[in-house]
Design a protein around this nucleic acid. Structure first.
Lengths: 130, 130
DNA sequence: CTTGACCCTCCCATGATGGGAGACCCCACA
DNA sequence: TGTGGGGTCTCCCATCATGGGAGGGTCAAG
């Protein structure tokens, strides 16, 4: 299977398929003409990566997850630990974003939002309040 | 005032002070020796930028906000519109992150997290469920 | 033999930030 | 007058994941 078909089968762009190989996440064989050749296992790896990316795992985490996945005897605790660590990071980021949104919404609530130049949002950014 | 003092006074790193100049957000004067020279207004701009960055405004938005800030006759509606648009973007991102965290937490809840190799998290990434 | 789809590698861009090299400037102190 | 140290200059590179595009090779069908 060439890269195009592997990309379609996995839902990963060709660009990223090559990139994942470049950083050592998979090692497809090569044909005589230099084309990459993907077997079923390679496509499975690509799907695994895509699903992990859908959950926003960084590629370095995915590298570890792939190693655990390939290790039939791994302890599920290791995977769970990695996952929970990532959950904490996601929730922390979400909290931070939500806090910024709330602050800004609060400011906007006190802004007329009409033709007048008076604007608490700009006032706040200017630093009258911090 | 040299760049070091302006950086300390505004809470922006020297690196970023230079970068903001490079992308045209401020235009400090130059001394005879080539050193940048910052006046009170420049520091105010840097503080403005920092506060906007604290709210995760992209620099392109900050460019517009600065223009509105400098325009004494602007309508507050414009600022408010920009802000609310940004609020929506922040909330959308926060929602997405929270959704990923929830999915992953759900998976982790079904993972023993012990010595056994059995792991619903890896199973899910593998694609048995997607 | 041409056409078109596919594949290759290499370079560049994003957005915001930082690290570091190599060189220059300036002031204080001996 | 010389030197040391701190401040500043520009330029290049790295991050993270992703994509765009150039320039060229490969292959199968017409």
């Amino acid at each position: 299977m060439n890269i195009g078909e592997a990309a379609r089968a996995s839902g990963v762009s060709e660009k990223m398929v090559r990139h994942y190989e470049a950083i050592g996440l998979l090692h497809p064989a090569r044909q005589a003409n230099g084309y990459r050749s993907y077997a079923g296992g390679d496509v499975a790896v690509l799907r695994f990566i895509r699903h992990a990316r859908d959950l926003a795992f960084p590629l370095e985490d995915i590298r570890k997850l792939l190693a655990l996945w390939r290790d039939r005897g791994r302890a599920s605790a290791e995977v769970r630990g990695l996952a929970m660590h990532h959950v904490a990071a996601l929730e922390e980021k979400a909290r931070a974003l939500q806090a910024m949104a709330s602050s800004l919404k609060h400011l906007a609530a006190h802004c007329h939002g009409d033709d007048r130049p008076d604007c608490p949002i700009l006032d706040s950014l200017e630093g009258r309040h911090g």
